[in-house]
Deep mutational scan, measured.
Amino acid sequence: MKTQEELTEIVRDHFSDMGEAATLYVQVYESSLESLVGGVIFEDGRHYTFVYENEDLVYE
């Protein structure tokens, strides 16, 4: 099982292909040891929320 830090790095790496991230945040109260819930805000103003669970990243 991966730590939240490892899950955060996986998510950060995925979003790095989409541009320069200004902020990546984790909603600790919705996350667990198995999943990471949060969002990313890019330098150009785009904002996505995400759920990373079971090696699957879903974002909108």
Score class of each variant (00 low, 15 high):
residue 12 R to Y: 06
residue 14 H to F: 15
residue 56 D to Q: 15
residue 17 D to T: 15
residue 54 N to S: 06
residue 1 M to G: 10
residue 45 G to N: 01
residue 60 E to V: 13
residue 45 G to A: 02
residue 18 M to H: 06
residue 23 T to R: 09
residue 13 D to S: 14
residue 45 G to P: 02
residue 19 G to T: 05
residue 36 L to T: 03
residue 47 H to V: 08
residue 46 R to I: 04
residue 2 K to S: 05
residue 48 Y to V: 03
residue 4 Q to F: 13
residue 8 T to N: 05
residue 23 T to A: 07
residue 34 E to A: 12
residue 44 D to P: 02
residue 51 V to M: 06
residue 21 A to T: 12
residue 22 A to Y: 15
residue 21 A to Y: 13
residue 22 A to D: 05
residue 51 V to I: 11
residue 20 E to H: 12
residue 54 N to M: 07
residue 56 D to M: 15
residue 17 D to V: 13
residue 25 Y to L: 05
residue 40 V to R: 01
residue 16 S to A: 12
residue 35 S to L: 15
residue 55 E to Q: 11
residue 50 F to Y: 02
residue 58 V to S: 10
residue 20 E to R: 12
residue 25 Y to Q: 03
residue 47 H to M: 07
residue 28 V to R: 07
residue 31 S to D: 05
residue 42 F to Q: 00
residue 22 A to S: 08
residue 3 T to F: 06
residue 42 F to N: 00
residue 2 K to Q: 06
residue 37 V to R: 13
residue 28 V to M: 10
residue 28 V to A: 11
residue 37 V to E: 03
residue 2 K to G: 03
residue 49 T to F: 11
residue 46 R to Q: 04
residue 57 L to P: 03
residue 5 E to W: 10
residue 9 E to C: 14
residue 14 H to Y: 14
residue 11 V to Q: 03
residue 2 K to M: 08
residue 26 V to D: 01
residue 58 V to I: 10
residue 3 T to I: 04
residue 36 L to W: 07
residue 43 E to Y: 09
residue 32 S to L: 09
residue 19 G to N: 05
residue 4 Q to Y: 12
residue 38 G to S: 02
residue 14 H to E: 03
residue 5 E to V: 07
residue 39 G to C: 15
residue 9 E to D: 08
residue 54 N to F: 10
residue 8 T to R: 08
residue 9 E to H: 08
residue 38 G to K: 01
residue 1 M to T: 10
residue 25 Y to D: 02
residue 48 Y to C: 08
residue 24 L to D: 01
residue 8 T to L: 15
residue 8 T to W: 13
residue 7 L to P: 02
residue 57 L to F: 07
residue 15 F to S: 01
residue 19 G to L: 06
residue 17 D to Q: 15
residue 4 Q to I: 14
residue 49 T to A: 05
residue 35 S to Q: 12
residue 8 T to I: 15
residue 54 N to Q: 06
residue 15 F to C: 11
residue 22 A to Q: 09
residue 57 L to D: 03
residue 51 V to F: 07
residue 22 A to G: 09
residue 48 Y to G: 00
residue 53 E to C: 13
residue 38 G to M: 11
residue 34 E to F: 08
residue 31 S to W: 13
residue 54 N to L: 08
residue 53 E to D: 06
residue 17 D to R: 15
residue 23 T to W: 14
residue 27 Q to E: 12
residue 31 S to L: 10
residue 4 Q to G: 04
residue 26 V to F: 07
residue 2 K to R: 11
residue 34 E to N: 14
residue 43 E to N: 10
residue 18 M to W: 10
residue 10 I to C: 12
residue 53 E to H: 10
residue 43 E to M: 12
residue 41 I to W: 10
residue 7 L to M: 06
residue 31 S to A: 13
residue 51 V to G: 01
residue 4 Q to R: 11
residue 35 S to H: 09
residue 53 E to L: 12
residue 39 G to S: 11
residue 60 E to N: 07
residue 39 G to D: 07
residue 15 F to I: 04
residue 48 Y to Q: 00
residue 47 H to E: 04
residue 6 E to P: 03
residue 11 V to W: 06
residue 57 L to V: 05
residue 21 A to S: 09
residue 12 R to M: 11
residue 11 V to N: 02
residue 53 E to G: 05
residue 21 A to F: 14
residue 14 H to N: 04
residue 57 L to K: 02
residue 50 F to C: 05
residue 46 R to V: 03
residue 39 G to W: 15
residue 30 E to V: 13
residue 10 I to Y: 06
residue 17 D to L: 14
residue 24 L to I: 14
residue 43 E to S: 13
residue 26 V to W: 07
residue 20 E to D: 09
residue 24 L to G: 01
residue 16 S to F: 09
residue 5 E to C: 13
residue 55 E to L: 09
residue 40 V to Q: 01
residue 39 G to L: 14
residue 18 M to I: 08
